[in-house]
Amino acid sequence: MRFHTRKWVKPEDLNPNGTLFGGRLLAWIDEEVALYSIIQLENAKIVTKHMSEINFKSSAKPGDIVEIGIDVVKFGKTSLTLTCEVRNIMTRETIISVDTITMVNLSEEGKPLPHGKTQIEYVKDRLEK
Rank of each mutant, 00 (worst) to 15 (best):
A44T: 12
K45H: 09
V47Q: 06
T48L: 11
T48C: 10
H50Y: 13
H50R: 09
M51V: 15
E53Q: 10
E53N: 08
I54W: 05
N55C: 08
N55P: 01
F56H: 08
K57G: 08
S58F: 13
I65R: 02
I65T: 15
V66W: 00
E67M: 09
I70L: 12
I70F: 05
D71E: 15
F75A: 05
G76F: 11
K77S: 11
K77Q: 08
S79N: 05
L80M: 06
T81H: 04
T81F: 02
T81K: 02
T83V: 01
C84T: 09
C84G: 03
C84M: 10
N88W: 05
T91I: 12
T94S: 09
I95R: 01
S97E: 14
D99F: 05
M103A: 07
M103R: 02
M103N: 04
M103Q: 09
M103L: 12
V104T: 07
L106K: 01
E108A: 15
G110E: 11
G110M: 13
K111D: 12
P112K: 04
P112R: 03
L113M: 14
L113Y: 03
L113E: 14
P114G: 11
P114W: 07
T118S: 13
T118R: 07
Q119S: 14
Q119A: 15
